[in-house]
């Protein structure tokens, strides 16, 4: 896929995701469709820039990382656009943006179904313990350091 086609198709897909997101936002979080439009347009614009940066800048920096970085910079305490940006995007509930991702993820999982046969039940148990351990390990260290710093 060449650069121009990538940009055009990505924009189309971002618009589709935007429409799905504001509908979900209205159904689940009592938000108005019209009130959500400025925010979703800003999200689509930043999303497109981020997807282009992810493709063009030759470091291993995925699209979502660029999106977080750009939106973080725009909403810093000393950013001149902080207030209008936050109030527009604030119309959209963060959980409403997660639901479409997981719907696509659920549908796409079928592509990896065949590979599951290689995995034994022992690996399943050990993986679940590893996931739990990762969470608790990080949280314990964070608790210790935050307490030592007097933040909590």
């Amino acid at each position: 896929m060449d650069r121009i086609e990538y940009i055009i198709e990505s924009l189309k897909m971002l618009i589709i995701v935007g429409v799905i997101t504001i509908i979900g936002n209205a159904v689940g979080y009592d938000a108005g469709i019209v009130e959500s439009i400025p925010g979703i347009l800003m999200i689509i614009a930043i999303g497109l820039v981020s997807l282009i940066l992810a493709r063009e800048i030759p470091v291993n920096f995925p699209g979502i990382a660029w999106a977080i970085l750009v939106a973080t910079i725009l909403s810093l305490p000393f950013s001149p656009v902080q207030e209008p940006f936050l109030s527009a995007v604030g119309e959209i509930n963060f959980l409403a943006t997660a639901t479409p991702i997981l719907a696509y993820a659920g549908l796409s999982v079928a592509m990896q179904y065949d590979r599951l046969k290689e995995i034994s039940w022992k690996i399943v148990i050990v993986t679940v313990i590893a996931m739990l351990g990762t969470f608790i390990g990080s949280a314990l260290i964070a608790e210790f350091v935050l307490r030592a710093q007097g933040i909590i």
Binding site: V17, I43, L51, A67, A71, S75, A105
Partner: peptide, 19 residues
């Protein structure tokens, strides 16, 4: 589409991290 649909979530996280 997972990668595309992560963009709105990423932007929302930015608006939480920035302030």
């Amino acid at each position: 589409m997972i990668l595309i649909s992560l963009m709105p979530l990423g932007v929302i996280y930015g608006t939480l991290v920035g302030p």
